[in-house]
Simulated assay, not measured.
Amino acid sequence: MAMGIAQVGGRTRRSRRAPMAEINVTPFVDVMLVLLIIFMVTAPLLTSGVPIELPDSRANPIDQTPDQVTISIDSEGYVFIDDTRVPVGGLPEALERLDRGGDGNGPIIVLRGDRALDYGRVMAVMGELNRAGFNSISLVTNSGARQPAVSSGSDAEE
């Protein structure tokens, strides 16, 4: 490349370097790959912050929508709306404060209950959801459970 060479009086002399006209994309790619790894690691942690041991099920996974509200019940029976703990007895008021949306049906409720909970506690929360007008409720479980054994004895009848 003859850009940096100047000829003066028969002798060649190097002038100062000309500005480089190429863009070095290697640092840009490195930064983007690091950001991608950070987002891949943190994305599963953004779904819900309440630690719950979910029961197992063979149900198909549900699609997540942006207008859903996650209600979690931990192993002690405390209720959380998204990541905010609801005071004892304050669930009806907290449900009234939820945004119903423009169509009046309200958001999809995703209910997560710890496997150590009493069935009655989960049903009490579902009853409050129904009374507040939330009729679209999805129950969240772990996938990959074995098929339950079906008993054919007299215990199953009645």
Rank of each mutant, 00 (worst) to 15 (best):
M1V: 06
M1L: 04
M3V: 04
G4L: 05
G4M: 07
A6D: 11
G9C: 05
G10R: 08
R13T: 13
R14H: 11
R16C: 01
R17G: 10
M20E: 10
A21N: 10
E22L: 08
N24K: 10
N24M: 03
P27S: 04
D30S: 10
V31A: 08
L33F: 13
L33S: 05
V34Q: 05
L35K: 02
L35Q: 13
I37Y: 14
I38E: 03
I38M: 10
F39I: 11
F39G: 08
V41L: 15
T42C: 08
T42W: 11
A43Y: 12
L46W: 15
V50Q: 04
V50G: 04
P51S: 06
E53R: 01
E53A: 03
L54A: 03
R58S: 11
A59C: 02
N60A: 12
P61S: 06
I62E: 03
Q64S: 03
Q64G: 01
T65P: 05
D67R: 14
D67C: 00
V69D: 01
T70S: 06
I73R: 12
S75M: 06
E76F: 13
E76Y: 14
E76K: 03
G77W: 15
G77L: 11
Y78V: 01
F80R: 08
T84S: 09
R85M: 13
V86M: 04
P87T: 09
G89K: 13
L91R: 12
A94P: 15
A94Q: 12
A94D: 13
L95P: 00
L95R: 02
E96A: 11
L98W: 08
L98N: 07
D99M: 02
R100Q: 08
G101C: 05
G102K: 06
D103G: 02
G106A: 04
I109H: 07
I109N: 00
L111W: 03
R112A: 07
D114S: 05
R115G: 00
R115A: 08
A116F: 07
A124K: 11
A124Y: 13
A124W: 05
G127P: 09
G127I: 04
E128I: 11
L129K: 05
N130G: 07
A132L: 09
S136W: 05
S136V: 08
S138L: 06
L139P: 00
V140L: 10
T141N: 01
S143E: 04
Q147F: 13
A149Q: 14
V150R: 03
S151Q: 10
S151I: 14
S152D: 05
S154L: 08
A156F: 12
E157M: 11
E157Y: 14
E157C: 00
